[in-house]
Each structure stands twice: as C-alpha cells, then as structure tokens.
Design a protein around this nucleic acid. Structure first.
Lengths: 294, 294
DNA sequence: TTTTTTTACGAACATCGTAAGGATA
DNA sequence: TATCCTTACGATGTTCGTAAAAAAA
C-alpha cells in the first residue's frame, strides 16, 4: 500500500536531486530512503528517475511529484486543522446570553478572547433565559449565560457571578454622599423603573416603582438617562461596573436583593475544545472580577 | 505522527458505531482497532467518543470524522491518479503527424485507442517532418510521425511502414484491368499531379507531370477528383488503403518508388506510460497492416 | 578515484492477534 | 447477563541503520 511517508520521501529526493542530502533533511539514513523509493517504484511498476542518479525525473516522476506535493499539502493542512481544533486554537462556539450581560460585561471579554484565539469563531445572540435553556437542549447553541438557572440532568451549571442590586445615580447626586441607601431615601430620589428591578420582591420598593414617572427597558438608554440627571435607578452591580466616572453605584441598606449569573452547557455532551476554552476563560475572568469587588 | 491509516480506522468505527463490526470490515482484530483509536486520541489529546461504547461522537469526533472523510477521499483519488498514470490508464500524449498520415490512416487508429483508454488525452497536430523533429527536441511533443526520418543521438526511431507509390484510379478505369502499370501507360491516362508524387526521382514521370492539367494538394480532395473520373494519380499505397470500393490501387511496373513512415521519440527520456502505450499500439497495428498487405 | 546508490544483515520498533479481564446497557 | 471494549503479552512483520559492494561520473 502507498503511504504518505513514501510520497514525502520521494518529494524530498526529487527536490534535493540526490539521495544523500534528501536523507539528511529527512533525518534518515540513505539506505532507508533508497528502500522507500524502491518500494514506491515497485507499487507504480515504473521508474521515477531517468538514471540511478536521482537528478532527472521521468515523465511519471514529474507527474507523481506534482500530485504528491498537492496531496501532502492537503494532508498537512488537514492534520493542522485537527490538532488546532483539538487544542481549541480553532473552532466555533455558539453562545446565547441574556441581554443585560450581553450588553454590558460580555463585549470586553469577547474582545480579549478573540484577540488570543483569532481562529475561534464566536457566534453570539441574545435571548431570554427560558429560550436559552431550550436552545441549549436542542443543541442549537453550545453555551448559555442566564440568570438564576436551575441545575437539571440535562444542564451543567457554573456560577459566573453572584450579583446584588444597588442604586445607580449621577456622581453629583446628593445620595452619593451616603455609603448605603434605605428604601425610603430611594423612594424620594426620583426612581426610574426597569424590568430587572421589578422582579425584586420587596414591599417598600413597590410603592416607589408605582410612583415612578419613567420606565426604561434598554440598559444603555437607562444609564444615559441617569447620566442626564433624570433620576436614579436600581441595577445589579455588575451591569454598571464598567460605566463611566459620571455615574456612581451605592449599595442598598439591608436586605440586599440577589441575582445569580450562570453559565450553562449540556451535561451529557463533551463540549468542543473551543467551547471548553471559552467557558473556562469566562469563569476565570468572572472569578477575578468578584474577588476584585470584595 | 498521525497517519492516514489512523483516520481510516477512526472513520470506519464512527460509521459502524462499534468496534467489533468496524474491526471486521477493516479485516483487523478489535484489539488492534482499539489501540489505533487510542493512539489517535492521544495525538489529539481529547476523546473522540462520548463513552467507551463507540456509538456517540464528541464535538471533536464529529469534526475529525468530517475532515478525515474529506482527506481520505482526496488521498484515495490521488493514489488512483498515480497508479492510473503509471499503468497508462491516464495521461496525455502530444503527437505531431505529417498531414498525409494524419488525414488517412491515423483517425481509425485514434478511434480504437481512445475507446480502449478513455482517460488518456491525445493531443494531435499536423506539421511537416522538419518541424516535427524540432518540436520533439524542444519537448513540445512526445511522439512524432514523419516520413524518412534519420536516427540521431537525440531521436529514437521506429519504422511504422515502408510504403510504395502506385496508381490510384476509379474502379471502372481501363487501367484497372492490368496488374502493373508502366510509366508510359500512366502518362497516357490523364495524370493528376500532387506534392507527394512530385518528389519521386523518375525521368519518365516528369514529362507526365508537366503535361498534367490538374494539381491537387489536399489528399481528400485528390481522391474525390479521382472518384469523379477526372483522372488518375500517384500516391503511397497506405494513404489510399482505406478508400472506398469505387477506387482501385494498382502497382507500378519497376522501378517502385519508396517512402518510409517513422515514429520518432526522444532517445534520452523515458516516455510517460501513456506515451509508451500509444507508441506500442501504433507499431503493433501498423505491423498488422503491413503483414496483411503481403 | 570519488561520489552516489544499492544490497545485505542484524537490531529496533511498531503492529497484530489471542486470550483474559473490565465496564456498560 | 450478555455484549462490548480494553489490557497484557507473545508473535509477526516492517522499518531502520551500519557496513560493504556496486555503479556512475
């Protein structure tokens, strides 16, 4: 049977023009090269060189040389692709993310990851948590970033961050002078409602939300409003950690409302190396953030 | 090092879904297949199957399966191309032929050869003998069919046919009743001149050629003229052997003029297998013709 | 004669199959 | 429990390098 190694030996001899230097660059003894060459000629039934000196190719030799070069290039590209994929230097990761995370923290992480792994394709879409869970189980995505997921037999779960709500205000707001802010103080400060904070189960907050004149869905718009001095709002700390210096975050007086950000993946599948790499990158970076904030 | 055999084994196991039946279709023992598979996984550093039962692929396994299928198909195509070329089932033969041969005997030979070797490309052009010799030495063609070539150090020569001139006439011509025809009889019969017969060095012919009312270059046209009863002409026997029953060939009374048809190739090169095959086919068929005509 | 290639032969290596042991559905 | 896979181990076959012979320049 003709093997790639035979082609590699022949190509090197044809390129070098003699056995000795070809053997040297192949790291073999001339005798081994000679026998491999003889083996290939036996398979083809015809000589590859014009004379016993390996300087001139026959017509068959020229043809085999060209074909072998193409074949070896193709083979080497394939092996590189396989090892790259296996070592997470190549591949695709399909990720679905809740909007609050996708629009705030994710971009800088993606930027860093893609810089380090330029041949790993990230396919990112944003979705509500329930849809993410469904798409994951249907194998439409590889990873999901959701809030307050529950672990099941199908879903493996890793906590990315345990977040707590606090008050977001303009830096020159009077409330910024306090360390912690009570529900009463918040109610008097002109609260801007948003979907995230409406899920907080806190009776004293409900009155304030009902009296709010403004309700904004999009987080970016919400922060713009705060920056413009239209009021204050309640957001998880992570969401506004990267906001500019004109915006200040203050913790609430007890009790503090929590929400968890989880990374989910299919429990029964071995993820692709690129998926594992991105998942590990995410958990590592988010662990660093949590430690920094304490 | 990753070898094609590893990929072949993996692909077969992935396709079969289990080791035992894959081993059977590969003609190996399950243990050998198991070890080859383990070797591939060791090279990649990651598992290819979800569990030890080889029924479900990992993401890496799926990728390797697809890439390996493509690679093996490419490799097998290359090997087929190489062996086909070596055994003359594939290739290209560039041939230059003198017009008298190209337009008369060659077509039926080419038809037969291409029917038997459909993947051998024949590149045929017609040319005068001197140009053919030059193009052969410049490696622009692989074979030449010329008349009266001379053997040199650069040119290998094989005689395809030793041809003699005779009289070509319509079947109902009076001359057709004779076995051999003298120069005098020819001169009285209304000779049509042509470039081939003008090179015959025979004083008695010269007068007849000077009195000819018609001179035709193209052999096909020439035979059409003869068929129409416009006269008789002088041609090498081979040129009109395949002509229809309405045309008759008669030998000349002594002396008979000769010309040789030679197949030439480069003496210093090993020809491609397809070139050798076509050359051998030509000489064999032409030898048959010569034997038949005696 | 000098360089290059081939051949002969023993050693190293990888691969294979048999048989036994484990793991999984 | 039955099937499937892996491991252990001895046998086989292939590949390799050294050294000597043969061939070509």
């Amino acid at each position: 049977m003709i093997k790639t190694e035979m082609l590699r030996v022949f190509v090197e001899v044809a390129r070098a023009g003699n056995l000795v230097s070809a053997a040297e660059s192949l790291g073999r003894a001339p005798s081994a090269v000679s026998m491999t060459l003889k083996q290939l000629e036996a398979h083809l039934g015809q000589p590859l060189f014009e004379s016993e000196r390996k300087s001139r190719l026959t017509a068959l030799g020229t043809y085999v040389f060209e074909m072998s070069n193409r074949e070896l290039a193709h083979f080497d590209r394939t092996i590189t692709a396989l090892t790259d994929f296996a070592s997470a230097r190549r591949g695709e990761v399909r990720i679905a993310v809740v909007p609050s995370f996708a629009m705030t923290i994710l971009p800088e992480l993606v930027l860093e990851f893609t810089a380090a792994s330029p041949n790993v394709r990230l396919d990112i879409r944003d979705m509500d948590s329930a849809s993410i869970q469904r798409e994951l189980e249907r194998e439409r995505i590889d990873l999901g970033i959701v809030s307050d997921a529950r672990q099941t037999a199908e879903v493996r779960l890793v906590e990315l961050a345990s977040d707590h709500f606090g008050v977001v205000m303009r830096a020159d707001n009077q409330l910024a002078k306090r360390k912690k802010i009570s529900w009463q103080a918040l109610a008097r400060a002109g609260l801007i409602a948003n979907p995230l904070c409406e899920r907080i189960d806190e009776p004293e907050l409900h009155g304030a939300l009902e009296r709010a004149h403004l309700r904004v869905h999009n987080t970016t718009t919400l922060l713009t409003m705060v920056r413009a001095g239209l009021g204050v709002t309640l957001l998880p700390e992570l969401v506004c950690r990267q906001a500019d210096s004109r915006i200040t975050f203050r913790e609430l007086a007890s009790p503090v409302a929590h929400r968890r950000i989880d990374l989910i993946s299919r429990a029964r599948d071995t993820p692709s190396p690129a998926t594992s790499a991105f998942a590990e990158f995410l958990t590592a970076r988010m662990a660093e953030r949590t430690n920094l904030s304490r």
